[in-house]
Nucleic acid binder design. Sequence first.
DNA 1: CGGAATCCCCAGAGATACTG
DNA 2: CAGTATCTCTGGGGATTCCG
Lengths: 138, 138
Amino acid sequence: MSARTVVNLRNTEAPPRVVDISKLDFTNCPVRDLISQIGGKWSVLLLEALAQRPYRFGELRRMVPDISQRMLTQTLRDLQRDGYIDREVFPTKPPSVEYRMTDLGRSLYGPLAQLLNWAEANHDAVRAARVRFDQSQD
Amino acid sequence: MSARTVVNLRNTEAPPRVVDISKLDFTNCPVRDLISQIGGKWSVLLLEALAQRPYRFGELRRMVPDISQRMLTQTLRDLQRDGYIDREVFPTKPPSVEYRMTDLGRSLYGPLAQLLNWAEANHDAVRAARVRFDQSQD
DNA sequence: CGGAATCCCCAGAGATACTG
DNA sequence: CAGTATCTCTGGGGATTCCG
């Protein structure tokens, strides 16, 4: 994929210099790697929750009532795998599991939160653009 | 969906106050709305390209050789619909179509680029975390 | 040149039931 | 409580063909 292309394109000073575009490892593009993960349906939501404070499995489940048990487990495991959150098991009875954000996760949440703030601030503009577009298409 | 929950969760000062979580309009959550759009496979890539300068359809196609014609057309139309890019048709022969970023798109690209920079800067850390996780799971 | 229309496939996500 | 294990299904995305 266009890993190098992406890098070059973001360099706004230089002209676009497309390099070696066909031979690049698709799975190794950092941007695609990040977007495909947080692009999931629940990842950002859980990151927002855990950015505030640690939560237990059941707490997260109650906070996001329309997530299935399966997707909560899976999304948490994926976030843990990428190093954004930690998982700690307390051998109580019944057992309880707490999830908390790592330093890496917190450093991700900085720029991520900026983007989310943009989304909220400009949501009306986007919706208005959609209405205009749809009306112009008959 | 949890539109309000998201808002409250990002307010790091107050305790989590989950409000009216089941009755919210799923489609009206700004965060979900943005993430589901730019979470697409090609959106960010095209935004990066057009953040630099306007491009014609065929130019974009050559820059991203592994995108299908269909997905290029569709992704561009979606970005246009949300107001991030403009489309201008030049009635030459054969016709040519140019895409350029709008002011709204440029304002989005600010925080977005910060996130992408984070992705590149921390890609090694994420990959290392993955290796650790996979090895700890037998 | 820049699409639109059509067919097809599979990974992401939901529902349900069971377990340490 | 906090998960696994199956089964299922939708829709995002690819390949191909046709059009102004």
